[in-house]
Amino acid sequence: MIKLSNEELTVAINEHGAELTSVKDVQTHVEYMWQADKKFWGRHAPVLFPIVGRLHDDQYRYQDKTYSMTQHGFARDQDFLVTAQTATSVTFTLKDNDASRIKYPFAFQLDIMFSLLGRQLSVEYRVANPSDEPIYFSIGGHPGFNVPLGDSQGTFNDYTVAATPAQTYSSLKLDGPFSDVDHPTTLNFERPMKLNHDLFEHDAKILQLDQQPATLTLTSGLNEHGIAVTLQNADYVGVWSPYPAKAPFVCIEPWWGIADAVNADGDLTKKFGIHELYPQAMFNADYSIEYF
């Protein structure tokens, strides 16, 4: 387990999956991150790579060969190497290997960098293509936050998620686990969205950002604690809590990619929301979380 700390926060990140597992306030000892109670969801903040969401039949095709990969890909279940570290920052690295190439026949290097400054934790994804062929991938975060936060005796329904800019966003609904791309809709965030578990009856609420900056803020009127997730260039952001389980957490998920379209034909190069990275090129994506 890697620890970062400053005068405001202490942060723990597991080398397994490069997964953020804890963020605590130094003074109040408030734990902001969901603690992976398997009764509801046994993860904290997994990395989604090289796909986001689910594939039809957990399969895809590339160059006339069929590969199997389960939801959200394999990076979250791999051990990363720590390739740089200071008291307030760390870089984790994962490269392709014999096991990964069975599921994903591409050369890659994935670097995930965490940097703590004041009450803000920045997360950067860097995908490099060291080969002489294009690679195809998606990537995303899945951080879960305790609700309620702090010593409040409140409930899930006392919290809201606000968006900045406060506007109506394009949205995609999920049909089962798949993206209903033929029936786009909207989500009105001119006012904060009040949380209740029934919101997630049909899975995540998905805002289509198209790489426009946005901030989603989780707060209540019960105390001063909350979190704000700021995205500079994400394709989408999902808001999710498991249903029908009345779980005491919510995830705010920055995505550069999304689940297969309902009518996907399985060709990875044509997958909805896929990123193509040219030979010797590098892809950068980042987001930050402010804890207050």
Rank of each mutant, 00 (worst) to 15 (best):
H183I: 02
G273F: 06
P242A: 03
T164W: 06
E124S: 11
E133T: 13
G226Q: 08
E133N: 12
Q35M: 07
N188H: 00
T86K: 06
E253T: 03
Q85A: 02
L216Y: 13
A18H: 08
D96Q: 10
V181L: 08
I135K: 07
L209S: 03
F292K: 15
D286K: 10
Q85D: 01
G150R: 12
D37A: 00
I112R: 12
Q208E: 08
P254S: 02
D198S: 13
L94W: 08
G266D: 11
F80D: 02
A36T: 09
F249Y: 15
T215R: 12
L268Q: 02
I252H: 13
N97K: 11
A107M: 07
Q35P: 06
N97G: 11
L20G: 01
Q153S: 05
N6G: 03
G221H: 08
I2R: 10
Q232C: 00
K3N: 02
D57A: 13
Y125R: 02
S138P: 00
P192N: 15
L4F: 02
Q71H: 05
V250K: 06
A247F: 06
K3V: 04
G150L: 04
E133I: 12
T164K: 12
G238C: 11
L222E: 12
F74A: 04
T86W: 02
P248C: 03
A214R: 09
W240I: 09
N6R: 08
G17V: 06
A204M: 04
L209T: 04
C251F: 10
E276Q: 13
M1C: 06
S100Y: 14
L20R: 11
L121A: 00
Q27R: 13
I112M: 08
A261P: 05
L187Q: 15
E124W: 07
S5E: 13
P177K: 07
E124F: 04
G226F: 12
E15H: 04
R191N: 03
D182G: 01
L9C: 03
F40M: 14
I112C: 03
L207V: 04
T155S: 13
P254G: 04
Q211D: 01
E253N: 09
E276C: 09
R126V: 09
K3H: 05
